[in-house]
Write a protein that binds this DNA or RNA. Structure first.
Length: 421
RNA sequence: GGAGAGGUGCCAGAGCGGUCGAAUGGGGCACCCUGCUAAGGUGUUAGCUGUGAAAACGGCUCGAGGGUUCGAAUCCCUCCCUCUCCGCCA
């Protein structure tokens, strides 16, 4: 959510953001409504002030007659103010709903574009492996080595269901431990965070209402979060933090659930796009300062790179174009890992900052050195997500005999150094 | 799942129709005093929001939402949450 004052003063910027993010939203309508809202608020508050004064007089009335007369006047006043109050309430409600739909303004450095096709590569790392044999894709590797069971996955959990078996399971756990160690070394507080969350927090992080098709709702009105970003951000909701405690860095571990509605027919093979997976997420809260947000954005991006480099997976980093930014995101880098069978990079990490877009919704504030209360800034990036990262890991490390070499960084977490049958 | 208790400011805790945005204590902050095992004194310490350049003035908020009333932290209803006991259970 943006500050309405900011929207009033930067109407054109916001309109531009609406356009560039390909969002349907009428900024002028919102501002008209805001004007109406404030006008009504004024009259309602004036009436309230009169009532308060009248009440004061009733309290101070010396005789019963005086009192009765004043009460009579009050009743009259009350009758007249009902309508305005109703109308104010209605407008306020609409106003608040609309406010949730206003997009954040992208940073100047974000390239213009419509879709991920227009994202710009800014960095590559690692050498794309050259194989002197016919490679297998991760699906074939998984089947041949009995690492993932898709058929039984589908039998039990439906389309996109899967079982991670044997070394794949161990690998998945090892990767989590490995990523945890790196993030803890870099100052993150680890948490196993809830994935079952309430509506307020889903709204606060911006997944509702805009992405409501992509989240599972339970029969009792709760939601299964698609990322622990949701519950980790909710952790400090409605709190006032101390400036000296910032930046505060959390790594949230949780299962993640996504309906993948809207991606029918996409990535139907294998474990690239599944309904449930495990993820470590980096979530950072910092002071209300652009420079600091930018600095930390680079930092959490580096953290993900450090994790991938240790796994020796070739990747590149892209800056997402305006059209590929989420509603609240100011800027986003995607890290995409090389997938040999597809001969392209596929997204494994998404690193973004929001300024105070999320913290306004979640009411996460801090008291600065002058005692002023400000909204914090928030950022987040993937730490590591399995099973998706297993795709580049398995494929890039496959050998001609069908076995798979395990990167050295994981050896200390595993009792095997290769996967072989 | 059953029974009960409760949700008030940074914390503890009083208030149970008007004098309450809220006693008191603790903590924090500021100043004063004091040479001593950091004590004493005084003051200060909620957020949101509207008009305004500002000073200021106004409105809202005692878990959330609704209702009764001239008036609600206080009464009524619904929901959420916490705690205790019983049951069930990884």
């Amino acid at each position: 959510m943006l500050d309405i004052k900011y929207i009033r003063e930067n109407k054109d910027k916001v309109k531009e953001a609406v356009q560039r993010k390909n969002i349907k939203f009428d900024v002028d309508y919102l501002l008209d409504l805001d004007l109406k809202r404030r006008e009504l608020l004024q009259t309602v508050e004036e009436k309230n002030a009169m009532k308060n004064q009248a009440n004061q007089r009733i309290k101070e009335a010396e005789t019963q007659e005086q009192r009765d007369m004043l009460i009579g006047q009050m009743k009259e006043l009350d009758r007249n103010s009902d309508n305005e109050e109703e109308e104010y309430k209605k407008i306020k409600e609409e106003f608040e709903e609309l406010m949730l739909l206003v997009p954040n303004v992208p940073d100047e450095s974000v390239p213009f574009g419509d879709s991920d096709e227009d994202n710009k590569e800014i960095k590559t790392w690692g050498e794309i492996p050259m194989f002197d044999f016919t490679i297998k894709d991760h699906v074939q590797l998984s089947k041949d080595l009995d690492l993932v069971d898709f058929e039984r996955g589908a039998k039990v959990a439906g389309f996109r269901g899967y079982y991670l078996k044997r070394e794949a399971f161990q690998l998945s756990m090892a990767i989590m431990n490995y990523a945890t160690d790196i993030l803890m070394k870099n100052g993150f507080i680890p948490m196993h965070a809830p994935s079952l969350v309430n509506e307020k927090i889903m709204k606060g992080t911006g997944y509702l209402p805009q992405a409501k098709d992509e989240v599972y709702q339970t029969t009792d009105g709760m939601y299964l979060a698609g990322t622990s970003e949701v519950s980790v951000m909710g952790y400090h909701s409605d709190e006032i933090l101390k400036e000296e405690d910032l930046p505060i860095k959390y790594m949230g571990f949780s299962p993640c659930f996504r309906t993948e509605i809207g991606s029918y027919g996409k990535d139907t093979q294998g474990i690239l796009r599944v309904h449930e997976f495990m993820k470590i997420e980096q979530v950072v809260l910092c002071i209300n300062d652009k420079e600091e947000s930018v600095r930390l954005h680079e930092e959490i991006t580096r953290n993900a790179e450090e994790i991938l480099q240790g796994l020796n997976i070739p990747y590149h980093v892209v800056v997402n174009c305006t059209g590929d930014l989420g509603l609240g995101q100011v800027k986003k880098y995607d890290i995409e890992c090389w997938v040999p069978s597809q001969e392209k990079y596929r997204e494994t990490h998404s690193s973004s900052y929001f300024f105070d877009f999320q913290t306004r919704r979640l009411n996460i504030r801090y008291k600065d050195k002058n005692g002023d209360i400000k909204f914090a800034h928030s950022l987040n990036n993937t730490g590591i997500a399995t099973p998706r990262v297993l795709i580049p890991l398995l494929e890039n490390n496959q050998r001609s005999d069908g076995s798979i070499a395990i990167p050295e960084a994981l050896h200390k977490y595993l009792n095997f150094k290769e996967i072989k049958r």
